[in-house]
Structures are given as C-alpha cells and as structure tokens.
C-alpha cells in the first residue's frame, strides 16, 4: 500500500509499543478482499493524521508472533495503541470517520 509503512514481528516493539505518538495498526493479509477494500481509507487516514498518529500495516501470515500476541482472530483488524497499550480494537470494514474518531480520542489522550 502506497504511503503506509509495514511493521513486522521484528519491528513491532520499536515501532508500535515504544512509539511516542498513538499508533494505528492495520492487521491484514494478501488474500483478504475486505482488507484491499479498506486500503484507500487507511491511506487517507495516514495523510490526514501525518505527524499526529503513526500508521502501519502488519501481514498476519508473515508475522505470526505478533498475530498471536495481539489475539488477532480475523482480518482486517485495526488496533490503536497509546503508549504501548491497546486503546481501540475494530474488526471488519468500516468508514474512515469511525476510525478517525477513535484516532482523535487517542491523540487527545496522549497530550
């Protein structure tokens, strides 16, 4: 996906758990149609909240350790982290605004 970086089992702690800003992780998979349908929304959110929120994709098939650790049962799943803690969890397709509202709460809480 253009403009959105990937996180992996190796980088998850550094990029997500130790991040200073809120983080949205899009747990996705190559074979997942709804994930592809959500991709433009995730790119839009990355542009909208650039500098305020970090957004990463995580391929659950290539990164089983994080998938198990975060209890991901299906894709797409979106987790919002604030200072290493999960503050929001969403599964399935949804509007940009729903994720945006959760991100804005996380931004407020992180101040």
């Amino acid at each position: 996906m253009a403009n959105v970086e990937a996180a992996t089992d190796d980088t998850f702690e550094e990029k997500v758990l130790n991040a200073k800003t809120p983080v949205l992780v899009d747990f996705t998979a190559e074979w997942c149609g709804p994930c592809k349908a959500m991709a433009p929304a995730i790119e839009d959110l990355a542009r909208e909240y650039e500098g305020e929120v970090a957004i990463y994709l995580l391929d659950i098939d290539a990164n089983p350790k994080t998938r198990h650790a975060q209890g991901i049962m299906g894709v797409p799943t979106f987790l919002i982290f604030n200072h290493g803690e999960v503050t929001g969890r969403f599964t399935g397709s949804m509007s940009r605004s729903k994720l945006a509202a959760a991100l804005e709460s996380a931004i407020e809480e992180s101040k």
Binding site: P40, A41, S93, M94, S95, R96, K98
Partner: peptide
C-alpha cells in the same frame, strides 16, 4: 449520525467518503 460523519471529508482528497456512508 455515523452516516453523516462518514461524509465529513473533502471529496477532492478523500473521494471514497460518500461510499463510506454505506457502512453506517
């Protein structure tokens, strides 16, 4: 209300916003 919120984006930079109303 989430349906209205879904449309709360500039259609030039976020052209999928109107279609998002379907989810809500």
């Amino acid at each position: 209300a989430a349906g209205a919120a879904a449309a709360g984006w500039d259609l030039e930079s976020v052209p999928g916003a109107a279609a998002d109303m379907i989810y809500a």
